[in-house]
Every structure is written in C-alpha cells, then in structure tokens.
Design a protein around this nucleic acid. Structure first.
Ligand code: ZN
Ligand code: ZN
Ligand code: ZN
Ligand code: ZN
Lengths: 168, 168
DNA sequence: TTGCCCCTGTTATAACATAACGAAGCAGTG
DNA sequence: CACTGCTTCGTTATGTTATAACAGGGGCAA
C-alpha cells in the first residue's frame, strides 16, 4: 500500500502562484526557516484568493487535502507566514492577504516594511500601498507625544477605482 | 412593593464622567436621539475605564445593575454610541474607548472627525490623536490610485512615554 | 543513545459578534 | 382615548474568530 503516512495530498496552484511559492520557499530558507507543506498550502490558498480570506475559510479549503486540519493548524501557519512578512492580517476584516512587497524586498524579516491597505466595500478587493509620507506623518505625530512606535496598522475603507467607474 | 418594573439600578460614576455623560445626553438630544439608561451606563463604564474595554467585560459590569443584560444589549448600545461618535472601537483589541474629541466638537454627527490611536503594549493605555498631516497623506495616497476614501483606521502599537521612562 | 528543538495532532474552550422574533414603550394623529 | 408607526429592548439561539494545553513524532547534534 503505497503513499505517505499522513493524509496530505499536494495542492496545485496556478503558475504565477507557484512562482511566488517557490520564491517564498527560498526566502524562508535564507532565514533558516522552513516553509512546510501546511504553511505552503495555506500561503498558496491566500495568494490564490482575489480578496482577503478568513482563517476558517482557509481551514475548509485545507481540509479537502489535509484531513486532520483543525483551527490550530491554520492559525499556526498564519502566525508563521505573518512573522515572516509573507502575509498581512486585515484587522477590520479578520482576514488575510498576501504581501505584495515581500518578494521584491531584499532586506529580510526585519526590514520594517510598512503598508497601508485600501479595502473596497463593494468588491472586497484590498490593495496594498507603501506610502512613505503617511508613515512619516504618523511616526512624527507619535514621537511628538513621546510614543515609541513599533507597528502601525492603516486600513482605509471606501470604493476602489474599478467600482467607482461601474457606478458612474 | 415599590421600585421600577425593570431591574435597572442607576449606576454612579465619578464626577468628571458624570459631566461628560450630561454633555453626551445633551449632544444626543440635539441630534434627535435618546441616550437611554442602558446606553448611558455603557458609555459611563467605557469613560470610567482607564484602558479600552471589551464588550463582554462591559456585559459583566452591566449585569450587576441590570439583571437581564445579554450580548445584544451591549452590542446595541455600542453601535449607538459608535454611530454617534461618542466612542471608538480599537480594531486590534476588539475593545472600545471614549472619544476624546466629540465633546469639544460642534459639528455634529457628520463632522468627519478622524483620529489615530496610540496603543501602549505595556500599560495598555490608548491615546487618541488628531493629526491632520497623517490624514492628508493617506487620503492623498489613496486618491492617487483612484480610491474614494470613506473611513480610515489608524492604530499604532508601541510604548508610551510613561512606560518608556520606567524602563530607562 | 540521549536530549533538545521544532513542528504537528488533538481536544477542548475562550472570546467576540449577530440573527431572529416578539413585546414593551413612546411618539404623533384623529 | 384608540390607532398607528417607529424605536428600543428582552430573549434565545447560533455563528464566527482565536487560543490553551498537552501529547507525539522526527531531525539533529552532543
Ligand atoms: Zn506587505
Ligand atoms: Zn471595488
Ligand atoms: Zn474621537
Ligand atoms: Zn504605557
């Protein structure tokens, strides 16, 4: 009876997603971390989703290829991916998106990459911006009251350009 | 057998909180809204808390004065207070703080008040800033990609001035 | 071999939030 | 007052998101 001892079938993703997964694998290896099967599959599912996806939706998807998956399975993977800057959590949605910056960045885990997220309330698509002026302004304002900034969450809700066109 | 038909005892708050509650009551009246007993008590509890307080902590407090309180009781009050700009939700904490702006503002419900929140990860205290440069920068960045902004969430995690002193 | 660290499996529970429906209260109106 | 419409609230149940806690497996180095 051939086959692996654990019920984990390989999940196939579109070519561009596979490319990003390969890059992510190499990126993790350089950090001395391992992009294991589960982590890779969760990342692939996030990258394949056109909009932010929640932990329990990921769990449902994961289960069709990984029988034993439970909430901690997903949350552990999400924590790893988040720690390594491969994904971002959108707080307002309790959902996750792939980082559109990380794979273009050569500074590693602690590069201080900060972003702003534009959330369209019509189509649900989230765009990641990296606007230095915004970061500078908020950092300055915080320092002016003696606050030491460690992490900034900026999430903008509104209507994206696409959706605005459709209405007019 | 005297007493009200509903088990709702008046809760007493410190003088400064009572002052803000009175102002809030007048503010709501001007809007044609009613700051009912439950809403007033929830607001009072939020204003009395030195740090953000979660819905279920509010529920526990509320129950000692209001036997029948259930989750919807609290969430309805929170929605009302939030809609009227009297409180803010801190997304990263799923918890609520009183607005430090509203009672100084004469523009009413739709004044477009926007704020940034500095969350100290040591003491848990949250400070509300109103920095126009930050708002301008993020609005500009969004408009540059054709995004129509409706609401912005800015939450900064780090160490407050107080706590930074204690360490050094 | 032993000990250590990382990763995972598994069960259970905590924490946060809303759906749905009916009744009570509080306007105005005739 | 009786009628009506609207807001608020009580109540029960359920949905959604996230973590605690502990055991086991597998690689690697001393
Ligand atoms: Zn990013
Ligand atoms: Zn859109
Ligand atoms: Zn405010
Ligand atoms: Zn502090």
């Amino acid at each position: 009876m051939p086959g692996p001892s654990v019920q984990m079938n390989e999940m196939r993703f579109p070519g561009d997603v596979e490319d990003r997964l390969s890059l992510s694998e190499r990126y993790c290896a350089l950090q001395g971390s391992r992009l294991t099967d589960t982590r890779r599959q969760v990342l692939g599912m996030i990258l394949s989703s056109p909009r932010p996806i929640g932990a329990y939706d990921l769990l449902d998807l994961l289960r069709s290829h990984h029988r034993n998956a439970a909430p901690p399975t997903v949350y552990r993977a999400l924590e790893f991916l988040s720690d390594h800057g491969l994904i971002h959590k959108i707080e307002r949605l309790s959902a996750f998106v792939g980082c559109s910056h990380r794979l273009r960045c050569h500074h590693g885990k602690a590069c201080g990459h900060r972003a702003q997220f534009l959330i369209c309330r019509t189509c649900g698509i989230v765009k990641e911006l990296e606007n230095d002026e915004t970061e500078s302004a908020v950092n300055l304002a915080a320092r002016n009251v003696g606050f030491h900034v460690e992490h900034t969450t900026i999430e903008v809700e509104g209507i994206c350009a696409q959706c605005a066109e459709h209405v007019s």
